[in-house]
Amino acid sequence: MRSRRWSRSGDTRDTLLRAARDVFLAKGYADATVADIVAASGISVGSLYHHFGGKPGLFLALWEQFTRGQEERTARAAKAAGDSAERFLAGARAYLEGSWEQREVARLFLENDGPAEFGTLRRQRGWNWIGGNRRLLGLDGSRESQVLVVLLTTMMGEAGREVAACESGLDAAVTIDEVIRLVRRLLPTSSGVAEPTP
């Protein structure tokens, strides 16, 4: 009995998340209403508030789902690569490919549309991402290393936005290849010096 109840609860959450995703993509966060999401899902208002606390909770749950998927994708790719620079590049490529594959949702989260707390949470996740990239690259705590990792992380975030905005798969592939080429030039080699500019 209990497992069936948990299964129904999970199904309700999934249905609400799918409906919220569709409504947010169609209308944007600001113009979407709880009534729109309830109508699209067929789930009661009470269930929506029980599971997510309202429209902001749904948006943030979708963002967490998207972000977690991107983190898992990049971690798998990085784990399969060689040295620290190649791990970073493999993770960067996986992140950008995920931005294209999930472009509709990526566009939603890359805009400034969202609940008030979204900006703060996104900034915190950005700082966590910077710290993770510093560790992945094996950089020390020097100011130079901090500048490099902030630039690389910011570059990847903006590149994700650019890839998500591409009109075609070919444009996305060209953009991803160019970003990886440019990032490779910034990365320190085993000698500690970035590759020379061709």
Rank of each mutant, 00 (worst) to 15 (best):
R125E: 05
A19C: 14
E97S: 04
G57N: 10
W63F: 09
G69V: 07
P56E: 03
W100F: 04
G46L: 14
R143E: 05
L89P: 01
H51V: 05
L58R: 01
V45C: 02
A39R: 13
L148M: 10
A92K: 06
A20W: 07
A78E: 09
Y29S: 02
A80M: 04
E97G: 09
R161D: 01
S145A: 14
T154Q: 10
G160R: 15
L25N: 02
D14Q: 08
R68H: 09
S9I: 15
Y49F: 15
Y49M: 08
S41Y: 07
T154A: 10
G119E: 06
G157T: 02
L139Y: 02
A106Y: 08
E101M: 12
T153W: 02
P56A: 07
E162W: 13
W100H: 02
F118C: 01
R143L: 15
R122M: 08
K79C: 14
R107E: 00
V150K: 12
P196K: 09
R135I: 06
A194R: 13
P198S: 10
V183G: 05
R134F: 08
W129G: 00
T197V: 15
L170V: 15
T153F: 03
A159M: 03
R73T: 14
I176K: 05
E144K: 11
Q102H: 12
Q124C: 01
F24R: 02
L48G: 00
E104G: 03
L151Y: 00
D171I: 13
E64I: 13
W127M: 10
V147R: 07
D22V: 12
Q102I: 06
R13T: 13
L187M: 08
E195C: 09
A30V: 14
R181M: 11
A90W: 14
V150R: 07
I37F: 00
T15D: 00
A77M: 08
D171C: 13
I130F: 02
A90P: 10
V150A: 04
E167S: 12
E167T: 14
A80L: 05
L151N: 04
R13A: 08
A116W: 13
V149N: 04
L121S: 00
F109A: 14
K55F: 08
D36Y: 05
L60I: 13
R18T: 15
V45K: 11
A173L: 03
I130P: 02
D11V: 15
D22K: 12
G114Q: 06
A164R: 06
G157S: 01
K79N: 04
L137A: 06
I130S: 02
E97Y: 04
G98A: 02
L48E: 00
V147Y: 00
A194M: 12
A20D: 01
Y29V: 04
F52L: 13
L60M: 13
F24K: 03
L182T: 13
L110I: 08
R125T: 10
Q65P: 04
S190V: 14
R143Y: 01
W100G: 00
T15R: 15
L108T: 10
L139H: 09
L110K: 06
L58E: 01
H50I: 09
R8D: 05
P115S: 04
F109Y: 10
V163M: 02
V163W: 02
A81H: 06
R18P: 03
G91Y: 01
T175M: 13
W6M: 12
A116L: 14
R135D: 00
E101G: 03
R73Q: 09
F59T: 13
